[in-house]
Design a protein around this nucleic acid. Structure first.
Lengths: 143, 143
DNA sequence: CTGTGTGCAAACTCTTTGCATAAGT
DNA sequence: ACTTATGCAAAGAGTTTGCACACAG
């Protein structure tokens, strides 16, 4: 509760090492894009596009591999919201989302805000691993 | 509140007509598989498999088309839970789900049971269309 | 050096589409 | 008859994989 409060200030290279991932050029680059601008929701293609935009070169396959490695290491969380394509969230803490279907855009809802009551018992032998709340939004015609 | 209470007793052919869909052999067959056995969660492939299993023949493309037509007509709801493949729910009323990741299995949670509190305001110009709550389950090691 | 990671292209899965044929009203 | 739906095969998106080469420790 004292020295782990500021993981965001830990250098990228360190964070990768702690996660058991060798800090290769590609992984450091991707980690910097992901974790240096606050909470983000990215797809593989978006991230790959950013890499190119920055004038660097990482193959799309490596972007996929890296996103999954980061997810396995707990640096990212994979979101199943859109259905057709996978999104990864750099905010790994407990929180939920607004989803604007028309734009495919996600907005965080902080974890403390929402409370879910009245959950039934899970079936025998099962336990709850995580609760996802997705608040789907549409443009408001009225008003 | 009097004469619309039992849509489940309305003949399939009628329900299709009401939905503005011509009751073709394929649509009637698929609708019967979908709506004659209580609430179901199906993927296109599962449903196609059932058609074959019953000794009938409907192309997979038609299964996809039909599922989307039914969804557009409000007979089904599409679920974005799994990420990789689309699921369709024959229960169109307000309710939520347990999801057992290991098996890809879905279990309904009735609509009244769960209550979500503390929702923040949607961004300006937006309104909430629907709230999805997915309770992800894993096998309980302990106990 | 030695093992891990990367890039590429090909393969794969799920889903959609175009067009000729078939079926519903 | 006239229109809409279906089937097929091919195309398309997103993602994964196999293998030779490159790089971090």
């Amino acid at each position: 509760m004292e020295k782990e409060a500021d993981i965001s200030t830990t250098p990228i290279v360190e964070r990768l090492r702690i996660a058991g991932l060798r800090p290769t050029r590609q992984r450091v680059l991707l980690a910097e894009l992901l974790f240096s601008q606050g909470d983000r929701h990215v797809s593989a293609e978006m991230l790959h596009g950013e890499v190119i935009g920055v004038g660097e070169q990482v193959s799309l396959a490596t972007v996929y591999n890296t996103l999954h490695q980061f997810t396995g290491a707990g640096l990212l969380r994979e979101l199943a919201i859109d259905g057709s394509k996978a999104f990864f969230d750099t905010n790994v803490s407990n929180h939920n989302h607004f989803f604007i279907e028309e734009r495919g855009e996600l907005i965080d809802i902080s974890g403390e805000q929402i409370r879910v009551d009245g959950l039934p018992e899970p079936p025998p032998g099962m336990r709850i691993s995580h609760i996802d709340v997705v608040v789907r939004l549409v443009a408001d015609k009225k008003k």
